[in-house]
Design a protein around this nucleic acid. Structure first.
Lengths: 231, 231
DNA sequence: TAGATTGTTAATCGATTAACAATC
DNA sequence: TAGATTGTTAATCGATTAACAATC
């Protein structure tokens, strides 16, 4: 029953690393570096050269034997793989501090994420705007999504309302949710979700700190042998 | 040369899951559930029962054969493991929207993270306060950390200044950094860092969306066979 | 006791690293 | 060409899952 043109399934671990490659390549570009070998990049990024080559070869042969990788070309290719070579339309649900922080971070727009509007239930916020992005009433949500062909929504609201609002978003046609609410969203499989659970992140920091205090000088857990990154 | 009382090194993957167990147990407690089996929890959390038992047994036998786990006891034990049974002192560097969002999120305090102050270079922010947390000048940073025995710092400043400020924090005695700057911090091994790279998170969402659009109905990458979570 | 469910060992699966032939 | 470095296969390592004896 195996499909004919079976495409390789890319592992989650690889996807997690891709944006970091992209960031380093962007910095290399900015400093005028034209080519880089997997070995040199591996030193800068503190990963193995093997891993870099394996990761990239999931998507194609972007390098050249004896030369390495062309920084600009690889940068563009990773952008294409990540889908940030095209534009994405985005709305923010919840115009509190976190929603405002996202709205105010202009760099997202430079990467093709166009924030079209914010939504809130607070009448004191509705009608305001941030960098020209208007805060609208939640009552306009459904029609706005449909009329403006919105793909993505950042969910920066309390967890008590998150699941309900997420269902509404999906019903209106949203296909991707960037979830900052402190809860898991159970949604249909065709809807993709990326969670940013800040409280969990802070707990992990707490664990690391306590572990470090209890085991000074020890290799940190997660990898053997030494001062490896945790993430 | 192996040490005598070799403690098992806990893998990164286990640590990543612990806060999620904690969250689910907290919710179970709130709904008045007293005991739960690994199997029932596995269904709710969409992980395997085996994984839950393996994860927990890294830290000790918290369950009872034929009974399962006492929800409240397990909740407390995980809090202890994560180090959130004690108090942590925290400052926020950068009083912009993101810093304010953290300062305004009262739940961190309920988990023992006491935010003592915020710091910024912007004179319009210095002197303000959020929920009673004052915004101080960066010039006070060193003395404040030393005089108030601050352990942790959230870094919500532009990446251009992040590395310099991080070095200063470490010099002043900070042992843990919650890094929101869009850059990696290279710090001494005794300093622990937890990164929250929002732009990378958004790129992963973009990848998932594009992948989903290209392969409708397919299992998502990362796991074989079906509608598993990405994270 | 019988049933349930853990703790733990063994088996499987996947991801990382090492090695090297291919090739620029 | 000789040297460098990739792409890719094989070996290793680690994490997850399955199985089941222990035991409440």
């Amino acid at each position: 029953m195996a499909e004919k043109s079976e495409e390789k399934v890319i592992s989650k671990a690889v996807i997690r690393r891709l944006p970091r490659y992209y960031r380093y390549l962007g910095e290399l570009m900015e400093s005028g570096v034209e080519r880089i070998s997997s070995n040199e990049l591996s030193i800068r990024m503190k990963v193995t050269a093997s891993q870099i080559r394996q990761d990239l070869n999931n998507f194609g042969g972007f390098g050249q034997q004896g030369y390495g990788y062309n920084v600009k070309y690889l940068y563009q290719e990773i952008a294409r793989i990540l889908g940030i070579d095209r534009q994405h339309t985005l709305i923010i649900i919840g115009a509190g501090n976190l929603g405002q922080a996202i709205a105010n971070y202009a760099n997202f727009e430079r990467r093709g994420f166009i924030i079209k509007a914010m939504f809130d239930v607070d009448p004191r916020l509705i009608g305001k705007d941030f960098r020209g992005i208007p805060v609208l009433s939640m009552e306009c949500l459904d029609s706005f999504i449909k009329e403006n062909d919105i793909q993505m929504a950042a969910l920066t609201i309390p967890k008590s309302q998150a699941m309900l609002v997420a269902d509404n978003l999906v019903a209106s046609g949203i296909k991707a949710i960037w979830n900052f609410a402190h809860t898991d969203l159970n949604l249909p499989p065709e809807v993709v979700v990326e969670n940013v659970h800040l409280s969990e992140s802070l707990m992990r920091l707490s664990y690391k700190l306590c572990y470090q205090m209890d085991h000074p000088g020890r290799p940190k857990p997660g990898k053997q042998g030494g001062m490896t990154n945790w993430d």
